[in-house]
Design a binder for these strands. Sequence first.
DNA 1: ACACAAATGTTATATTATAACAATTATAAA
DNA 2: TTTATAATTGTTATAATATAACATTTGTGT
Lengths: 172, 172
Amino acid sequence: MVQRKAKQKTKQKGGAEWSHNHDHRLCIVDALDRAADLCAGRGARLTSIRRRVLELIWSSHRPIGAYSLLEVLKQERANAAPPTIYRALEFLLEQGLIHRIESQNAYIGCPNPDPDQQHKGMFLICTDCGNAVELEETKIDRLLRNSASNQGFVIESRTVEAAGLCPECQVS
Amino acid sequence: MVQRKAKQKTKQKGGAEWSHNHDHRLCIVDALDRAADLCAGRGARLTSIRRRVLELIWSSHRPIGAYSLLEVLKQERANAAPPTIYRALEFLLEQGLIHRIESQNAYIGCPNPDPDQQHKGMFLICTDCGNAVELEETKIDRLLRNSASNQGFVIESRTVEAAGLCPECQVS
DNA sequence: ACACAAATGTTATATTATAACAATTATAAA
DNA sequence: TTTATAATTGTTATAATATAACATTTGTGT
């Protein structure tokens, strides 16, 4: 088990997520550490390509497209091609380490990957700065399930993406 | 104002939406009538292409892709091309007559287009039969807005798509 | 009939994603 | 340690979705 700095980091609540000038290096390190732990625990192989793609995705809090990732990866691995990226994305999605933002055909790191099950996130996405924050709204999830259940529908997975202005971008 | 049969049709509540053998012709007629009314009221031009694309979208309750639409339209208009479809889709989206299902890159008719504002729907999509039903869950919407608001985030639009099994497809 | 704006036609291309098969690398059984 | 096997990556090609740009036609109001 990798010792992680994450344990020392106090997680702030309530909008701190939107701060445009946090120490983002910590986000990256934490994400990579968590990923390593999770994969180790599952016997899943976080190869160097996969690790690097995850790192690139975590290079910001903005969803990033497959071909943007490819552009960067190509500078390091001349033979990187679309399948290189898409395979890595597939793996990371399966492991619950990233989410796909359907409304943007883009990918974003999961800040809280669940060791037991991979969840689908709920996101607030700023139309101005592009940053996206994942919500953990069990209430909404429950309400949605109930609502579906009223029609006899059983939800297996869901996509919730809200676009708008983050607190920092409202000052205009 | 077009007289519509819709007014005679009693709308059933609670799962009737999933019935695989309703008289779908009524759905189509209603949708086209509503569209005509709405566009007339707005001075928007529901041209024959646009009308036909809307009709094709309403040919089922399954989200349909742009190129599937194009395939059909081509049989009627030899010179139909991708822009033909995408322009029609753009118009219909603007008028709130259809919704885009982000998780499928596909389009579906809006059963309840709002004369005043175009809303983004919330959908239950059956992974078996492919049918999708639009929810009107102001509660969920409110909860989502509140939850965003707690972070200082203002939602402008949202995507909610839940995949699972509809009542009819659960019997297996 | 004319002028203008809106809609459509047409060609080309951008963007996102997957198929198919070959080569390589890791793993663990013999 | 070698070898068999499965997993990963390389490579080429192509599918699927979407838009750009400019020409032409059609509709609308004057």
